[in-house]
Write a protein that binds this DNA or RNA. Structure first.
Lengths: 204, 204
DNA sequence: CTTTGACTAAAATTATCAAAAAGTCAGAAA
DNA sequence: TTTCTGACTTTTTGATAATTTTAGTCAAAG
């Protein structure tokens, strides 16, 4: 194993450990010292692998989203129809939110930084939009759908998938959700998605 | 004029004055003394007409929503089709949010009280749901729509109308929106409503 | 090249206290 | 009797300062 590979591997270990903490306690309740302790090393050594806490968080985020998009692309490719592809998007997305709720929730405070926001919009939202737009475009081509502005339709679909959970969590007074809450969110979102998708279909 | 009517009229004046302050400065930036000054009376006299600040806020809220529902019912009754009725709901709702944004926004902090939340859910959300359900039911009866669970469909429609603006305000970092932001919100919500409504229609 | 303990700087937390606001009440005014 | 008020108490809020925690640095060691 080359030194370069050693270093990458250690970076990966740090990312895994950090993700665990972030998932369980959230960003702001995780200190660099705790991550270092979990790693069995000193805090200072973390700064050898990452420039600062923000950099570490960003790397964790990217790793998480890469995994998300891998899963998403796989599921969408397997789908037999545009309808089922769009429902797959809903499902994979829901799994992500359920699993990494705390991490994703306290995301914002990491990004009081305009630059980072833009970066993530590009990397995350745009990519998701394109993927969904492809699903809808596919539906249009095979005659399943009748949609004039495909990009707009994709954006709306994703906006609803994002906003309905927000609404539900608000109605839950922003408390940490129980399993029951998540399944309510899933149900609501599914119904909304159902009608939106029906709206993509050809009308009578 | 009976003494009872005199009292009611004064109550109304207080409500109007309070609503003005709440609209302009929000709930927490409005003191009872300021309202009293606007009224040209002493703060203590307010407590003759309302039990406490919460009670006053609640009365203002109810008055506001009564006006909202009056407007809403009128517009919905005038609508020529279920589609246009549902779009009227969107429009009247948008006007309300735009006009009383500050007041509606800082609503939550008034209602750290479970009891009040429930009360408002009953009085406000349920009533809105019923009204929209009637629109959709009408559409089903006249052959415009094909919707199995009308109450569920109504709930989804209103959830989308509520959640898309939330999402947009979040993306605006919860800053006080400019006029331009409101029109973006309106546009987004309109597109979402468009597809949901299309989803209510009979499919090919 | 990697790691660390000991360090500094910055941020978050808590404690304190004065000012502001909510809310009360005995009694005046109508 | 009904409506209103000035003077009052209690509660909340906000600013500031003291304290602790955490991020981040660095010279030196392995």
């Amino acid at each position: 194993m080359t030194p370069e590979e050693m270093k990458d591997e250690k970076r990966e270990r740090i990312l895994e450990i950090a993700l665990k903490r972030f998932t369980h306690y959230g960003l702001e309740k995780t200190t660099m010292s705790e991550i270092a302790d979990d790693l069995g090393a000193s805090k200072a050594s973390l700064y050898y692998y990452f420039p600062d806490k923000k950099g570490l968080c960003l790397a964790v985020t990217e790793k998480l989203f890469e995994g998300y998009f891998d899963e998403l692309s796989k599921k969408v490719k397997q789908a037999k129809s545009a309808d089922s592809a769009l429902l797959q998007v809903l499902e994979v997305r829901h799994d992500l939110v359920k699993r990494y709720f705390l991490f994703l929730m306290y995301f914002k405070q990491l990004h009081d930084n305009k630059q980072l926001e833009d970066y993530l919009d590009l990397k995350f939202r745009d990519r998701e939009n394109e993927l969904v737009a492809d699903c809808i475009q596919e539906g249009v081509w095979n005659g399943e759908y009748e949609v004039v502005n495909v990009a707009e339709a994709a954006a709306v679909y994703l906006d609803v998938l994002e906003s309905i959970p927000m609404l539900m969590f608000k109605r839950n007074n922003y408390k940490l959700p129980e399993a029951e809450t998540f399944s309510q969110v899933m149900r609501k979102t599914l119904v909304a998605a159902h009608y939106i998708i029906r709206g993509f279909h050809k009308t009578a």
